[in-house]
Amino acid sequence: MRANQDVKHMSLDEVNRELLLEQLERNKWHRYWVAIKKDWPLYVMLVPVLLYFFIFRYMPIYGILAAFKNQNDLTLSVGQAPFSGFYAFRSLIAGDYAKEFWQAFRNTFAISMYGLIFGFPVPIILALFFSEIKSDFYRSLTQILTYLPKFISTVVITSIITLMLFEGNEPHQAPGVITSLLQNLGLIDESVGIMRNPQYFRSIYIISGIWEGAGYGSIVYFAAIMAISPTNYEAARIDGANKLAQIRYVTLPGMAPTLTIMLILRIGEILSVGYEKIILLYNVQTYGTADVISTFVTRIGGLMGGQSISLNTAAAADLFNSIIAMFLVLGANFISKRVSDTSLF
């Protein structure tokens, strides 16, 4: 008798649950509309962001088809061009463009890896320095001074670099400040033009990149340091920890999640060296160490000597670059998740 009652009660509970779920399903869109109506200003502000990503991020994905089409006839759109399969990829990897492409690939990887090794720690060190400045005025002043290069256009930055490294071969033109200093120290010969020497190009690019972006990049790390509770530092001081020990056992562990996320993002950009600064700095003599994938794509995808080079090969090179970058991000994210339980997704 009791068992029959339990079964009856369970069936009633199930019926009530089903009715409740049906009621919630019927009112779902009404609840969504109420939520949107309540916070409509926020959703209106979100519209330009969604339009930006749709127009400039999602619509260009259609252009990926160019890597698999024959685009020699510029009068045809991507959709109208005949399908050519993986011909462009074969041309890149082991065909007519293989030598130039692999040279650009090596240069891209080398420049990015050197930038990661030498450039990634600098914003972290700057953020640590900023956190130790007790005066708000001096801290704000030093932060503004380090942020400024980020807001200068690339053309101006490259012009400043060129002027400072000018070799001054002509009698009425003195060498640049840095060139003159290196010559006086005996580090370079007067006949050596730094901007025309391929072995110096990567150093110039990386050092100028650190100077340009280190201050701006320190913002994230400085915010992570400021989010650490002061009681952690007080406990470390009570235990007798000096300043370096506090940084090692309190600051760096507190920044660890931020460091991990930023490192994953930086790894994803290893093969994404921008072409603007490279084009403005390199020349015929430095071409061997300066040409990267983005400049390679720009060159062969444009017009050279009045002839269209190969739009589908350029698209294939860019797609190849993006696929490798995607796998780098996935791999770095997987390793981070297994090692530290911190990941992007």
Rank of each mutant, 00 (worst) to 15 (best):
I117S: 01
L126V: 13
P60V: 08
A127V: 12
F53E: 00
Y32F: 14
P82G: 03
R57Q: 07
F105Q: 03
A81S: 15
L65R: 12
F105E: 09
V122T: 06
E22N: 10
A110T: 13
L65N: 12
V47Y: 11
A104V: 09
E18F: 07
T108A: 05
F83Q: 05
D39W: 08
L21G: 03
S84T: 11
L65P: 01
L74S: 11
K38D: 13
I117F: 14
K69L: 07
V49D: 03
L116D: 00
Y87M: 12
R90G: 05
L74H: 04
I55L: 13
P82L: 01
G119T: 11
D96W: 00
G119E: 10
V44F: 14
G119M: 11
Q71K: 12
L51H: 04
P48C: 11
E22T: 06
I93K: 09
E14I: 12
K37M: 10
A94Y: 12
S77M: 03
V15F: 14
R106I: 07
R26G: 06
P82N: 04
F56C: 01
P60Q: 03
F120R: 03
N16Y: 14
A88H: 11
F118H: 05
K38Q: 15
N107C: 07
R90H: 14
D96C: 00
M45L: 15
F89C: 07
Y87T: 15
P48M: 08
L74W: 09
K37E: 13
L21W: 09
K28V: 11
L65Y: 12
A98H: 02
N27C: 07
L19E: 06
I93L: 14
F105V: 05
A88D: 04
W40E: 05
L42G: 14
L20Y: 09
S84R: 04
S112V: 00
R90N: 14
L126N: 08
